[in-house]
Simulated scan of single mutants.
Amino acid sequence: MNIKKIITIVSVVLISVLMIYGLILLNQIFSANTKFTEKEVYVYVPTAATYDDVKKIVSPYIENMNRFDLVASKRGYDENVVPGRFLLTKGMNSYAIVKAMRLNSPVKLAFNNQERVEDLAGRVGSQIEADSLSLLTSFKDSIFLKENGFNEENVLAMFIPNTYEVYWNTSAVKFRDKMIKEYRNFWTKERVVKAEKQGLTPIDATILASIVHKESVKKDERPRIAGVYLNRLRAGMPLQADPTVIYAIKKKSNDFEQVIKRVFYKDLTMSHPYNTYNNLGLPPGPIAMPDITALEAVLAPEKNDFIYFCASIDRFGYHEFAATYEEHTKNAKKYSDWINSQDVKR
């Protein structure tokens, strides 16, 4: 056999080997490599995670880790791990998985109805990587508060309840900075002017809206309640808002888990900054996170001459309003007689 034939045979063998290797490699790269039954799953890669960390995180969802490892190495992913939240879909191949692990999927983060900034930190911390303590620390940072016109009592006013799109690995400081931008976007010149017409700053309006929010879940009644409270403020009367007394009880006892359905006379005399029976004007901060309808009710209140209101026994969830104390006394007695008949202790 001459040299030319030998070279030809060797070449054919090498090409065949390379083709077989190529087919094996293509199979490893492009054949399905997932083992979960759901249509899709999300995996979370913490900040500063290593490639070994990633392999532990994704291993419950990948059929053949050697295939994934091969592609990750070829694509340079093993030396360039990306933190965040990543979407894997059923039947993905190794190439698609590695590609997906570089595409950070945002989180739809929602919050509302939080009574304290501590509660908000816990709520947000359950949805992104930053924990509640780091979030709370960033919210209460003294330099940040001073620069933006807040203090620890009223900083809850900065957070506008809504659904926001953020990355899961957003840091506490970056989340806080996003929220101050959202606050400024919400408080347009038009809204600021509306607040000023009521004699309020944006923070004042939020504090009052938190009381309106707690007074009634009926959105159609909130402008009327806001009108009553503004009438009291203009008349130099105390707000005498039961929700502020409830908040004061919780804050004084440091127990925000308790459910208080009834306020007694002894509660109204309690010495506390949030007791609006004892103190004129607004309390030091919001007693809850008001929703947008409560804020809009304060900015566009009903013009009325009502000074008093109490819960209605005929229209559950609504209130009876009065312009005179005599009329209010009759309404209040009806409610008092009814609640006594229900034997509500607290």
Rank of each mutant, 00 (worst) to 15 (best):
K252G: 12
K251L: 08
A248P: 12
V98P: 04
Q28P: 02
P83G: 10
R123Q: 13
K333I: 00
V193K: 15
Y164I: 00
V71Q: 10
E79F: 04
V98S: 01
E38P: 09
I225K: 14
S171R: 10
P243R: 07
N27G: 14
D69L: 00
Y42I: 01
I62N: 00
E196W: 01
N33L: 01
A248L: 04
I29K: 11
K108F: 13
A121M: 05
E190P: 08
K251T: 05
I15L: 13
I287A: 09
F175W: 05
N113H: 15
Y265P: 10
I9H: 06
E118D: 05
A248T: 04
F30K: 06
L103H: 10
G22Y: 12
D69A: 02
Y247I: 06
V298W: 11
P223G: 11
L200Y: 09
A130W: 03
D314W: 08
F316M: 08
L239I: 00
P238Y: 07
I6T: 11
F159M: 15
A130F: 04
E296H: 14
G76N: 13
D291L: 05
D204P: 06
T170E: 09
Q198C: 08
I143C: 03
I180N: 08
K74E: 01
N154Y: 08
N151A: 04
V12I: 15
T244F: 13
V82A: 09
L230D: 01
A157I: 08
F309P: 09
K261G: 05
V54G: 02
L233R: 10
V17M: 09
I143A: 14
K303Q: 13
N151F: 03
Q342D: 05
K194W: 08
G125W: 09
K178W: 00
A32P: 11
L88V: 02
F309G: 06
E153D: 02
V259N: 15
R184Y: 09
S59L: 03
M92K: 08
I9D: 01
I339V: 02
F186E: 03
Y167Q: 03
G317C: 06
V124Q: 07
L26H: 15
N154H: 05
T206C: 09
V54A: 00
Y265N: 14
V58W: 07
D131E: 04
F175D: 00
G317H: 11
L208C: 08
I6G: 07
N169I: 01
R234Q: 11
H272D: 06
Y164L: 05
K140D: 10
R85D: 03
T50L: 13
Q258H: 09
T89N: 13
V107C: 05
